[in-house]
Design a protein around this nucleic acid. Structure first.
Ligand code: ZN
Ligand code: ZN
Ligand code: ZN
Ligand code: ZN
Lengths: 127, 127
DNA sequence: AACCAAAACGCAAATCTTTGCAATTGCAAC
DNA sequence: GTTGCAATTGCAAAGATTTGCGTTTTGGTT
Protein backbone atom coordinates (compact mmCIF):
# COMPACT_ATOMS: atom_id res chain seq x y z
CA UNK A 1 0.00 0.00 0.00
CA UNK A 2 1.22 3.44 -0.93
CA UNK A 3 1.00 6.43 1.38
CA UNK A 4 -2.18 7.85 -0.10
CA UNK A 5 -2.97 11.35 1.02
CA UNK A 6 -6.66 10.50 1.24
CA UNK A 7 -5.93 7.54 3.52
CA UNK A 8 -3.94 9.78 5.82
CA UNK A 9 -6.58 12.50 5.96
CA UNK A 10 -9.28 9.94 6.72
CA UNK A 11 -7.20 8.53 9.57
CA UNK A 12 -6.68 12.01 10.98
CA UNK A 13 -10.34 12.90 10.60
CA UNK A 14 -11.69 9.75 12.21
CA UNK A 15 -9.10 10.00 14.97
CA UNK A 16 -10.26 13.48 15.79
CA UNK A 17 -13.98 12.75 15.57
CA UNK A 18 -14.11 9.62 17.74
CA UNK A 19 -17.50 8.77 16.25
CA UNK A 20 -19.37 6.69 13.73
CA UNK A 21 -19.26 8.64 10.46
CA UNK A 22 -21.05 7.77 7.25
CA UNK A 23 -19.18 7.79 3.95
CA UNK A 24 -20.94 11.06 3.10
CA UNK A 25 -19.74 12.63 6.35
CA UNK A 26 -16.20 11.44 5.75
CA UNK A 27 -16.42 12.78 2.21
CA UNK A 28 -17.44 16.23 3.45
CA UNK A 29 -14.60 16.30 5.96
CA UNK A 30 -12.04 15.25 3.35
CA UNK A 31 -13.26 17.95 0.97
CA UNK A 32 -12.34 20.60 3.48
CA UNK A 33 -8.72 19.74 2.72
CA UNK A 34 -9.01 18.15 -0.75
CA UNK A 35 -11.92 20.00 -2.38
CA UNK A 36 -11.68 18.12 -5.69
CA UNK A 37 -11.56 14.59 -4.30
CA UNK A 38 -13.96 12.10 -5.81
CA UNK A 39 -16.45 10.14 -3.70
CA UNK A 40 -15.34 6.81 -5.13
CA UNK A 41 -11.79 7.61 -4.08
CA UNK A 42 -13.05 8.05 -0.53
CA UNK A 43 -14.88 4.72 -0.72
CA UNK A 44 -11.74 3.01 -1.96
CA UNK A 45 -9.60 4.61 0.72
CA UNK A 46 -12.08 3.56 3.40
CA UNK A 47 -12.03 0.03 2.02
CA UNK A 48 -8.23 -0.05 2.24
CA UNK A 49 -8.30 1.17 5.83
CA UNK A 50 -10.92 -1.40 6.81
CA UNK A 51 -8.90 -4.19 5.20
CA UNK A 52 -5.75 -3.06 6.96
CA UNK A 53 -7.60 -3.11 10.28
CA UNK A 54 -7.26 0.53 11.26
CA UNK A 55 -10.91 1.41 10.66
CA UNK A 56 -14.15 -0.51 11.28
CA UNK A 57 -17.19 -0.46 9.03
CA UNK A 58 -20.62 -1.45 10.31
CA UNK A 59 -24.25 -1.46 9.34
CA UNK A 60 -26.02 -0.04 12.38
CA UNK A 61 -29.41 -0.07 10.76
CA UNK A 62 -29.37 3.59 9.76
CA UNK A 63 -29.48 3.15 6.01
CA UNK A 64 -25.81 3.66 5.36
CA UNK A 65 -22.65 2.11 6.72
CA UNK A 66 -20.65 3.91 9.40
CA UNK A 67 -16.88 4.07 9.80
CA UNK A 68 -14.92 4.47 13.02
CA UNK A 69 -11.26 4.58 13.98
CA UNK A 70 -10.10 1.49 15.86
CA UNK A 71 -7.07 2.94 17.57
CA UNK A 72 -9.07 4.07 20.61
CA UNK A 73 -9.70 0.55 21.81
CA UNK A 74 -12.02 -2.14 20.66
CA UNK A 75 -15.71 -2.04 21.52
CA UNK A 76 -19.07 -3.28 20.25
CA UNK A 77 -22.67 -2.10 20.22
CA UNK A 78 -26.24 -3.12 20.98
CA UNK A 79 -28.78 -1.35 18.79
CA UNK A 80 -32.44 -1.15 19.85
CA UNK A 81 -34.72 -1.83 16.90
CA UNK A 82 -37.58 0.07 18.48
CA UNK A 83 -36.09 3.36 19.68
CA UNK A 84 -32.75 3.27 17.89
CA UNK A 85 -30.74 3.66 21.07
CA UNK A 86 -27.12 2.56 20.77
CA UNK A 87 -25.45 0.92 23.78
CA UNK A 88 -21.71 0.30 23.90
CA UNK A 89 -20.23 -2.86 25.36
CA UNK A 90 -16.60 -3.52 26.13
CA UNK A 91 -14.55 -5.93 24.13
CA UNK A 92 -13.99 -8.26 27.08
CA UNK A 93 -17.70 -9.01 27.15
CA UNK A 94 -17.35 -10.54 23.69
CA UNK A 95 -13.76 -11.76 23.68
CA UNK A 96 -14.65 -14.95 25.50
CA UNK A 97 -17.04 -15.98 22.72
CA UNK A 98 -14.46 -15.25 20.06
CA UNK A 99 -11.86 -17.30 21.93
CA UNK A 100 -14.22 -20.22 22.15
CA UNK A 101 -15.03 -19.99 18.48
CA UNK A 102 -11.32 -19.85 17.74
CA UNK A 103 -10.79 -23.06 19.75
CA UNK A 104 -13.78 -24.97 18.44
CA UNK A 105 -13.42 -24.07 14.78
CA UNK A 106 -9.77 -23.09 14.35
CA UNK A 107 -11.14 -19.86 12.90
CA UNK A 108 -9.45 -16.57 13.66
CA UNK A 109 -12.20 -13.99 14.19
CA UNK A 110 -11.36 -10.57 12.78
CA UNK A 111 -14.73 -8.88 13.35
CA UNK A 112 -13.71 -6.00 15.55
CA UNK A 113 -16.86 -3.90 15.90
CA UNK A 114 -19.79 -6.22 16.44
CA UNK A 115 -23.34 -4.91 16.10
CA UNK A 116 -26.16 -6.84 17.76
CA UNK A 117 -29.77 -5.85 17.23
CA UNK A 118 -32.54 -6.29 19.77
CA UNK A 119 -34.78 -4.47 22.26
CA UNK A 120 -33.44 -2.21 25.01
CA UNK A 121 -34.63 -2.35 28.62
CA UNK A 122 -36.92 0.67 28.31
CA UNK A 123 -38.64 -0.65 25.21
CA UNK A 124 -39.10 -4.07 26.77
CA UNK A 125 -41.12 -2.48 29.56
CA UNK A 126 -43.30 -0.59 27.12
CA UNK A 127 -44.56 -3.70 25.41
CA UNK B 1 -49.89 -7.87 8.75
CA UNK B 2 -52.10 -9.06 5.97
CA UNK B 3 -51.68 -12.38 4.19
CA UNK B 4 -49.89 -11.07 1.14
CA UNK B 5 -49.52 -13.61 -1.62
CA UNK B 6 -45.93 -12.50 -2.21
CA UNK B 7 -45.11 -13.08 1.46
CA UNK B 8 -46.52 -16.59 1.23
CA UNK B 9 -44.67 -17.46 -1.95
CA UNK B 10 -41.40 -16.20 -0.49
CA UNK B 11 -41.92 -18.36 2.61
CA UNK B 12 -42.61 -21.39 0.44
CA UNK B 13 -39.63 -20.67 -1.79
CA UNK B 14 -37.15 -20.13 1.02
CA UNK B 15 -38.51 -23.17 2.86
CA UNK B 16 -37.90 -25.35 -0.15
CA UNK B 17 -34.47 -23.95 -0.97
CA UNK B 18 -32.89 -24.14 2.50
CA UNK B 19 -30.21 -21.72 1.37
CA UNK B 20 -29.01 -18.14 1.42
CA UNK B 21 -30.74 -16.40 -1.50
CA UNK B 22 -30.11 -12.87 -2.72
CA UNK B 23 -33.02 -10.54 -3.37
CA UNK B 24 -32.45 -11.05 -7.10
CA UNK B 25 -32.66 -14.82 -6.70
CA UNK B 26 -35.84 -14.54 -4.64
CA UNK B 27 -37.23 -12.19 -7.28
CA UNK B 28 -36.58 -14.73 -10.05
CA UNK B 29 -38.24 -17.50 -8.08
CA UNK B 30 -41.28 -15.37 -7.31
CA UNK B 31 -41.66 -14.44 -10.97
CA UNK B 32 -42.11 -18.09 -11.87
CA UNK B 33 -45.50 -17.84 -10.17
CA UNK B 34 -46.17 -14.08 -10.30
CA UNK B 35 -44.54 -12.96 -13.57
CA UNK B 36 -45.60 -9.31 -13.22
CA UNK B 37 -44.43 -8.74 -9.65
CA UNK B 38 -42.28 -5.68 -9.05
CA UNK B 39 -38.82 -5.90 -7.48
CA UNK B 40 -39.66 -3.31 -4.85
CA UNK B 41 -42.65 -5.39 -3.82
CA UNK B 42 -40.29 -8.29 -3.19
CA UNK B 43 -37.99 -6.05 -1.16
CA UNK B 44 -40.94 -4.88 0.94
CA UNK B 45 -42.21 -8.41 1.45
CA UNK B 46 -38.76 -9.57 2.52
CA UNK B 47 -38.58 -6.66 4.94
CA UNK B 48 -41.91 -7.71 6.49
CA UNK B 49 -40.76 -11.30 6.87
CA UNK B 50 -37.50 -10.22 8.46
CA UNK B 51 -39.33 -7.94 10.90
CA UNK B 52 -41.75 -10.70 11.81
CA UNK B 53 -38.83 -13.02 12.53
CA UNK B 54 -39.54 -15.74 9.98
CA UNK B 55 -36.65 -14.85 7.69
CA UNK B 56 -33.11 -13.67 8.36
CA UNK B 57 -31.19 -11.14 6.32
CA UNK B 58 -27.41 -10.93 6.41
CA UNK B 59 -24.46 -9.34 4.73
CA UNK B 60 -22.05 -12.18 4.12
CA UNK B 61 -19.59 -10.04 2.25
CA UNK B 62 -20.75 -11.04 -1.22
CA UNK B 63 -21.94 -7.64 -2.40
CA UNK B 64 -25.62 -8.17 -1.76
CA UNK B 65 -27.64 -9.25 1.25
CA UNK B 66 -28.85 -12.85 1.54
CA UNK B 67 -32.14 -14.10 2.95
CA UNK B 68 -32.81 -17.45 4.61
CA UNK B 69 -35.80 -19.14 6.24
CA UNK B 70 -35.48 -19.41 10.01
CA UNK B 71 -37.90 -22.27 10.60
CA UNK B 72 -35.19 -24.91 10.14
CA UNK B 73 -33.43 -24.03 13.36
CA UNK B 74 -31.20 -21.17 14.31
CA UNK B 75 -27.56 -21.11 13.24
CA UNK B 76 -24.74 -18.68 12.55
CA UNK B 77 -21.75 -18.45 10.23
CA UNK B 78 -18.03 -17.81 10.10
CA UNK B 79 -16.91 -16.31 6.79
CA UNK B 80 -13.27 -16.46 5.71
CA UNK B 81 -12.14 -13.18 4.26
CA UNK B 82 -9.36 -14.83 2.25
CA UNK B 83 -10.99 -17.81 0.53
CA UNK B 84 -14.66 -17.00 1.07
CA UNK B 85 -15.39 -20.28 2.81
CA UNK B 86 -18.54 -20.27 4.92
CA UNK B 87 -18.60 -22.34 8.11
CA UNK B 88 -21.80 -22.94 10.05
CA UNK B 89 -21.91 -22.90 13.83
CA UNK B 90 -24.76 -24.02 16.04
CA UNK B 91 -26.83 -21.58 18.00
CA UNK B 92 -25.75 -23.02 21.34
CA UNK B 93 -22.21 -21.90 20.62
CA UNK B 94 -23.44 -18.30 20.63
CA UNK B 95 -26.41 -18.40 22.97
CA UNK B 96 -24.24 -18.15 26.06
CA UNK B 97 -22.90 -14.80 24.91
CA UNK B 98 -26.38 -13.52 24.19
CA UNK B 99 -27.58 -14.62 27.64
CA UNK B 100 -24.74 -12.83 29.30
CA UNK B 101 -25.42 -9.69 27.31
CA UNK B 102 -29.06 -9.96 28.26
CA UNK B 103 -28.09 -10.15 31.96
CA UNK B 104 -25.46 -7.45 31.94
CA UNK B 105 -27.31 -4.92 29.83
CA UNK B 106 -30.99 -5.85 30.15
CA UNK B 107 -30.98 -5.95 26.38
CA UNK B 108 -32.96 -8.61 24.54
CA UNK B 109 -30.86 -9.74 21.58
CA UNK B 110 -32.86 -10.46 18.44
CA UNK B 111 -29.98 -11.06 16.02
CA UNK B 112 -30.73 -14.57 14.88
CA UNK B 113 -28.19 -15.24 12.11
CA UNK B 114 -24.85 -13.86 13.20
CA UNK B 115 -22.05 -13.45 10.67
CA UNK B 116 -18.48 -13.26 11.93
CA UNK B 117 -15.61 -12.53 9.57
CA UNK B 118 -12.09 -13.82 9.94
CA UNK B 119 -9.55 -16.34 8.61
CA UNK B 120 -10.23 -20.07 8.34
CA UNK B 121 -7.79 -22.75 9.48
CA UNK B 122 -6.49 -23.50 5.99
CA UNK B 123 -5.80 -19.87 5.18
CA UNK B 124 -4.05 -19.36 8.53
CA UNK B 125 -1.54 -22.06 7.57
CA UNK B 126 -0.92 -20.49 4.19
CA UNK B 127 0.32 -17.23 5.65
C1' DA C 1 -73.93 -5.66 -1.45
C1' DA C 2 -71.84 -1.10 -0.57
C1' DC C 3 -68.33 1.35 2.13
C1' DC C 4 -64.14 2.44 4.45
C1' DA C 5 -59.54 2.41 6.23
C1' DA C 6 -55.39 0.03 6.21
C1' DA C 7 -52.15 -2.71 3.82
C1' DA C 8 -49.95 -3.93 -0.32
C1' DC C 9 -48.57 -2.75 -4.93
C1' DG C 10 -46.35 -0.63 -9.28
C1' DC C 11 -43.58 2.76 -10.95
C1' DA C 12 -40.13 6.06 -11.11
C1' DA C 13 -36.77 8.54 -8.74
C1' DA C 14 -33.51 8.85 -5.09
C1' DT C 15 -29.87 6.99 -2.34
C1' DC C 16 -25.92 4.17 -1.34
C1' DT C 17 -22.02 1.55 -2.97
C1' DT C 18 -19.18 -0.81 -6.35
C1' DT C 19 -16.70 -1.33 -10.62
C1' DG C 20 -14.32 -0.85 -15.39
C1' DC C 21 -11.22 1.80 -17.63
C1' DA C 22 -8.12 5.27 -18.87
C1' DA C 23 -5.10 8.84 -16.92
C1' DT C 24 -2.11 10.27 -13.21
C1' DT C 25 1.06 9.81 -9.50
C1' DG C 26 4.62 8.00 -6.28
C1' DC C 27 8.57 5.00 -5.51
C1' DA C 28 12.39 2.70 -6.54
C1' DA C 29 15.79 0.85 -9.73
C1' DC C 30 18.66 1.96 -13.30
C1' DG D 1 17.17 12.42 -14.12
C1' DT D 2 14.85 8.93 -16.63
C1' DT D 3 12.32 4.69 -16.86
C1' DG D 4 8.98 1.28 -15.37
C1' DC D 5 5.54 -0.55 -12.66
C1' DA D 6 2.06 -0.74 -9.53
C1' DA D 7 -1.00 1.98 -6.58
C1' DT D 8 -4.15 5.66 -6.68
C1' DT D 9 -7.49 8.59 -8.78
C1' DG D 10 -11.50 10.60 -11.62
C1' DC D 11 -15.30 9.72 -14.17
C1' DA D 12 -19.18 7.51 -15.71
C1' DA D 13 -21.90 3.58 -15.52
C1' DA D 14 -23.68 -0.30 -13.16
C1' DG D 15 -25.57 -2.59 -9.23
C1' DA D 16 -28.16 -2.79 -4.80
C1' DT D 17 -31.66 -1.01 -1.94
C1' DT D 18 -34.99 2.42 -0.35
C1' DT D 19 -38.61 5.76 -0.75
C1' DG D 20 -42.55 8.92 -2.30
C1' DC D 21 -46.79 8.78 -4.25
C1' DG D 22 -50.86 7.60 -6.52
C1' DT D 23 -53.60 3.27 -7.35
C1' DT D 24 -55.38 -1.21 -6.27
C1' DT D 25 -56.54 -4.84 -3.23
C1' DT D 26 -58.02 -6.77 1.13
C1' DG D 27 -60.86 -7.58 5.17
C1' DG D 28 -63.98 -5.90 8.21
C1' DT D 29 -68.31 -3.00 9.07
C1' DT D 30 -72.65 -1.11 8.02
ZN1 ZN E 1 -18.46 2.01 17.71
ZN1 ZN F 1 -35.37 0.93 22.80
ZN1 ZN G 1 -27.38 -19.35 7.31
ZN1 ZN H 1 -10.01 -19.37 4.12
Amino acid sequence: MRASSVDQIIIETLSKEHAHLTSAQVYEKIRERLPAVNLSTVYRALERLVTSGSVSVSDMGTGSAVYEILADGRHHHLVCQKCGQVLTIEDNEVRELFSKIQENNHFHVLTNHLILFGICAACQKDS
